[in-house]
Design a protein around this nucleic acid. Structure first.
Lengths: 200, 200
DNA sequence: GTCTATAAAGCGATAGAC
DNA sequence: GTCTATCGCTTTATAGAC
């Protein structure tokens, strides 16, 4: 899935350059201004193409959203695979899971999905896959290096850290960052004190 | 603030019945269908009044949003005050902080606020107040009943649990509930094992 | 593949009768 | 306070020239 997408872009196929720019612009707009700013005109503006071309490449907005979501999802899965391709550690887990940027875009896609059922299905399928992969990694990390003292289930670690990343992204939208640094520092100290890393 | 609002509704003033229905419909629509469904026509439909009356009672949509947000905020603060009006306990803190419904509406208001600066200020002010009150309660609860073994800062408890509530609400939008029950059960067991409640 | 032109629908907001 | 009517604007989407 990720391979096919990469291949097309790697080949530098001219035929799909405009199409790629449209998809890129969609993701950029979602990340920067939220889904309320998603219109064919704004997308064309950001992509540097006439907005009518959006309709040439995509039968409907929903088709565009699904394509854009798939690209983002593939990149997330590839990045997750890259980071987790090695010895499992809670530190690595925390690193890949605390990315606020990805949380932000994901929230916007879910908001869009409220009005686009096909997109909602696509998101649900991906979210289960991504969570399962994260859970597997957290499980391996906890099995290897957690202290016997506290046996926190991997799924609890997963939901608490995912929720924290999402909350931080959400807070930042209204300029609220109270407690963010303190919480991150505490978690890092906790990781240092409660795990026995074999090698980094 | 909360008192004034309550007073008007308690009096049952006929003059503001339509206005109240419009505000109610706005909050309902946000909770049920998200901010993408917020239009004067949809609001009028849900409220059972002609949509033009929205403009009679509110100079602009932003004014309506701010009024609706204030009503919800006042109710949240009143509910928080009610629950925390007694001896502080982590169990009570978890109860008031794990409300997924309030999280959902809050997320929608923040999404709306991206395009309405005055609303954003209103939300930021309220969020700081609400967080501060929650933090104070968490601090008191931890000081009273946490075991000496783990000294988790109150702000860490606050952000982790708030993030979890928000994540659950977000997950549910796409029909994803994997791990929710397990995590809640674990937290409740953790509370039972790691706190020494004086009385409930 | 990209352009101009335009259709069809929905939006917030206002004017004026009652 | 509520109604009908309508303005001016933006949206998605399509048609047809090049």
């Amino acid at each position: 899935m990720s391979g096919a997408g990469q291949e097309i872009r790697a080949r530098g196929s001219r035929a799909h350059e405009t199409r790629d720019r449209i998809v890129d612009a969609t993701i950029q707009l979602l990340a920067r201004e939220g889904y309320g700013s998603i219109t064919t005109r704004r997308i064309g503006e950001v992509a540097g193409v006439k907005y009518q071309l959006v309709h040439y490449y995509f039968a409907s907005m929903e088709d565009l959203f699904i394509d854009a979501f798939r690209r983002g999802a593939e990149e997330n899965l590839a990045r997750l695979a890259e980071i987790t391709d090695g010895e499992a550690s809670l530190r690595r887990f925390w690193k890949v899971n605390s990315d606020a940027g990805a949380s932000r875009v994901m929230v916007e896609f879910v908001a869009l999905a409220q009005r686009h059922p096909a997109l909602r299905l696509e998101i649900a399928t991906y979210a289960r896959r991504f969570r399962a992969a994260q859970l597997e990694f957290a499980r391996a990390a906890l099995a290897r290096e957690s202290l016997a003292a506290d046996h926190i289930p991997p799924v609890v670690i997963l939901l608490l850290t995912t929720g924290l990343a999402q909350l931080e992204a959400h807070d930042r939208l209204i300029g609220l960052t109270d407690g963010h640094d303190e919480t991150r520092t505490w978690i890092e100290n906790w990781l240092a004190a409660n795990t026995t890393p074999v090698k980094e």
